[in-house]
Design a protein around this nucleic acid. Structure first.
Lengths: 250, 250
DNA sequence: ACCTGAACACCGTTCAAGT
DNA sequence: ACCTGAACACCGTTCAAGT
């Protein structure tokens, strides 16, 4: 009696797809679904309807399952989201093209990692929500950290500085993508060119007392295309992180 | 019949507290609540039960109101959250202590703004969730931006660079607080000292394939106290943002 | 072992009705 | 104008039961 949206493949369709990492086959009814298939459905939901739509019930729905059946695969919603994060982070390329341990090469490696992480986040809408809702402690998150730590060590930073620099990069990438996502949400289509928004008068929804912000108004649309300001920001951050010495400069 | 948790002041208690910005008094039953009182209740909920507990129904509950009565004050949940964000940002001190427009003074002003914003966010748990869930376009958000833009202009940056530098600082503060909050959530009490967590074996919850991360393991607990790494990161970011020239350095 | 159906305690929001 | 109560379409999660 519950309203079902869209066709499904048959409630008890036997799909006999056994994940090879699931352990030896056991008697009894087999899992009809792979973790990969569930994550696929979850990502489909994420990309088509946004992060809010990624619910246990929603994912179960697109798979033709009862919500409770989901709890055979994941102990709770958090574990499902963690699985999605892991698969997402697994897609960023961390292969060291050619291991020259020079400071210059270390810097470009950091930039590549940061840009790679940002790419996989911005190219599927809603992915930031995922990252912010889930602790980043899976193997793929740690692998990314490891690469950043190695690069900063190659650049000559001591362990404490390398650890803090890694954190700074992490913070910057996630913060930047979160901001872009928030802006995208309130003006879909994106301000790739100078786009003043839906007329300056119509945006005064709730804030009735007019206060003027000359600098902010003047700089609206200046250098705020997401990719450009991200690239610029990462380079400036690295300028600071890899500066030759912590002595005062004139 | 609905379960009410805790005492309340009487369902139809006339509180005759009229907000002075509400416009001239009108006939008919007065508002029994101020926007400020509603926000107060919302913040109480935020601080005691976390961001998840800040719901229209929850806030109505602590005020002794029906959920639907909330819609007389705010058109939807987003507007309520935006109101909270505005009040929060209003608490960061943006008074220019003494307007010396030197680059050195500009730098310390940026640091003070960043630290001030961080303070009001970390001192009430759950506030980050608020910031990340709401577009930062209210007057107080714009006022903060304005101060940052002015400081970067005083430091000698051209308008585009100042705009991007402002964005970088914004991104860094919010990203850092979001990370701290995520870490705090999974190990309350905080790793202020070297805290290896709940025994290295017990944390292997879902990730069964053991992969080793020598650098990450070695640097665990190194320089990761939140306040310290934030201060360090902001200084390094400013090193890069305020570097004398974009020419290559040896 | 995997799955269903009913149930519990929640959401945000709308609507008709009272004062 | 402000508020209530009922209702709609959702949540995450637990439990008893079927195969």
């Amino acid at each position: 009696m519950r309203p079902r949206s869209g066709r499904r493949v048959g409630r008890n369709a036997v799909r006999c797809v056994e994940s090879p990492t699931e352990g030896p086959m056991r008697p009894g009814p087999r899992r009809s679904l792979t973790h990969a298939e569930i994550l696929e459905a979850a990502f489909a939901l994420l990309e088509t309807k946004g992060f809010e739509a990624v619910s246990v019930r929603g994912v179960a729905g697109v798979l033709g399952l009862t919500p409770t059946a989901m709890y055979t695969y994941y102990p709770n919603k958090g574990a499902l989201l963690a699985g999605m994060v892991e698969q997402l982070l697994g897609r960023v390329d961390t292969s060291e093209a050619d291991g020259a341990a020079t400071p210059e090469h270390a810097r470009t490696r950091v930039v590549e990692l940061a840009q790679g992480l940002r790419s996989i986040l911005v190219e599927r809408p809603g992915a930031v929500g995922l990252l912010l809702a889930t602790p980043l402690d899976g193997p793929n998150a740690r692998r990314l950290d490891e690469r950043l730590l190695a690069a900063f060590a190659d650049a000559g930073l001591d362990p404490v500085a390398a650890s803090r620099a890694t954190h700074a990069v992490r913070v910057h990438v996630l913060g930047a993508v979160a901001f872009d996502a928030a802006e995208e949400e309130r003006s879909p289509g994106g301000p790739t060119a100078a786009d003043p928004g839906p007329a300056p008068a119509a945006s005064a929804t709730l804030w009735d007392d007019a206060e003027t912000f000359p600098l902010g108004d003047r700089s609206r649309g200046l250098g705020d295309d997401p990719a450009g300001r991200f690239a610029w920001g990462i380079e400036r951050l690295l300028d600071g992180l890899l500066a030759p010495a912590p002595i005062a400069r004139g």
